[in-house]
Design a protein around this nucleic acid. Structure first.
Lengths: 208, 208
DNA sequence: ATATGTGAACGGCTTCACAGCC
DNA sequence: GGCTGTGAAGCCGTTCACATAT
C-alpha cells in the first residue's frame, strides 16, 4: 500500500476500465481471474495490470490469480463510489440535455442533483429527469448542498465566466465540455472533453 | 521538419488547442504572438509550445514571436482540415442525437454524412440535420462514399459487434462513446470517450 | 506448474538552460 | 534586449524478467 499521491493518474483512470470488465466476469459467475486474461479484456499489458493493482495491496494469490469480488470492492473503495457524489450540470443545450438523459452517470454512482441555465425558456422543458433552475440560483444551491463537482456544457464564450462562479461557490472538480481552456486555481481539477478535438486528432492518425 | 511518425501523439492533440487560441487572436487582429503568451492561453509551458511547433519547421522569428496566420495555416495543413473529412455516426440514442445537433464538428472541418441505427422508429425523426438510415445500409454506404471515420454511440453490448462491421467495411478510425473496450486490428485507431469514467476519475482527484 | 509482485531497464515526453538570431 | 530553437537533463510511466509464493 502506498501514499495516495504516488498513484499515477493513468492508473486511477484504468481502474474504471478494470471495474467494468470485472463486473462482466462477476455476472458470469467467475470467482477468480488472472492478470493475463483481465489485462486482455482491458486492453493493457499483464504487467501493467499487476502494477496498477499492487498500489492497493497484495490482492492476488500466486499460482491462482485475483478474486473478482475483492478487486471490485477494492476499486470501488478507491474510487469512492461508496459515497454517491452529488453533481450539477450547467448549460442545458443539446449536449447538456443529452447528458441529463444519459443514465451512465447514475450507474457509476453519480447523481445529477440539478441543471442550470441562463435562458428561462429552456428551464420549462418537463421531459428532463432532473430539476432545472436558473443560473442565479446556482451559487446558493452549490453552497447549500455542498456540491463539489460540476459538468460544464455552456458555449465557449461563457465557459471561463461560469467556471469562475462555480469555483467561487466551492466547486473543486469540473468536467468541461466547453471548447475552451479554463484557467482555475491549482486546487481545482478540470478534465476536458473536447469532441471536435478528439475527431481532429483521430483523423491525423489514420493512414492516408 | 521531421518524419510524421516522430511527432508525439500529445503534440498533435495540443495543436488543436493552439488552433483555437490562435483563432481568437486573429479575431482580435493580432498579427504575431510570443510563445510565452500563447502558451499561457493554452495552459502549457512556453518551451513545450516551441518544441511542438518546431516539429513543423522554423515558424517563428527570434526576438519577435510567431506570425498568427502562418501558425493557423500550418496547423490546418498538419491536421488535414483542407480535406473535409467525411464521417458517419452510429447509434441515434440520446447521445447520438445530441452529437448530430452539435455544430462543433462542422466548425472543425468534419461533415457527418449520415447516421445509422437499428431501430426504424428513431429513423423517422425529421428534426435532425443529417439523413438517418438503417444499419443494413451502413456497409454499402461506407464503401461507396469511402468513409474512413465513425462516431460510435451504441449501447455497450453492441459496441464490439458494430465496430467489427465498421472495420470490415473499411473504417479506420473510431471515436467510441460506448462504454466498452473495442478489440480492433492494429491499423485501426480507436479513441474512447467514456463520460462516466471521466467523472469517476475526476472525483478521485478532488480533495476530501 | 502456475501466476503474482517488483526492482531494474527502457522509452518517451517535458522542462531546463542557453546558444543563436533578429 | 527579446524571443526562438534545441541539445541535454530530468521525470514518469511502461515493460521486462525473474524471484517468490502457493
Amino acid at each position: 500500500m502506498v501514499n495516495k499521491s504516488d498513484i499515477p493518474k493513468k492508473t486511477i483512470y484504468r481502474l474504471s476500465v478494470y471495474s467494468r470488465c470485472l463486473r462482466r466476469l462477476r455476472d458470469n459467475a467467475m470467482e477468480t481471474v488472472s492478470s493475463d486474461s483481465l489485462a486482455q479484456a482491458a486492453n493493457v499489458k499483464p504487467a501493467q495490470l499487476r502494477k496498477d493493482l499492487a498500489y492497493f495491496g497484495h490482492l492476488g494469490t500466486r499460482g491462482l490469480g485475483y478474486p473478482v469480488e475483492l478487486l471490485l470492492e477494492t476499486i470501488g473503495d478507491v474510487l469512492g463510489r461508496a459515497t454517491l457524489q452529488p453533481v450539477i450540470l450547467v448549460g442545458v443545450g443539446n449536449l447538456g440535455r443529452a447528458l441529463l438523459r444519459y443514465d451512465g452517470f447514475k450507474k457509476e454512482g453519480f447523481e445529477v442533483l440539478a441543471a442550470f441555465d441562463s435562458d428561462r425558456e429552456v428551464l420549462k422543458d418537463e421531459r428532463l429527469p432532473v430539476p432545472l433552475m436558473h443560473e442565479e440560483q446556482m451559487v446558493d444551491f452549490v453552497k447549500e448542498k455542498g456540491v463539489r463537482m460540476a459538468i460544464l456544457c455552456v458555449p465557449a464564450q461563457y465557459g471561463q465566466e461560469v467556471a469562475n462562479v462555480l469555483v467561487d461557490a466551492g466547486v473543486q472538480g469540473i468536467l468541461n465540455f466547453s471548447p475552451t481552456i479554463l484557467q482555475v486555481p491549482d486546487q481545482v481539477v478540470v478534465t476536458r472533453v473536447d469532441l471536435a478535438m478528439e475527431l481532429e486528432s483521430l483523423s491525423y492518425f489514420i493512414d492516408q
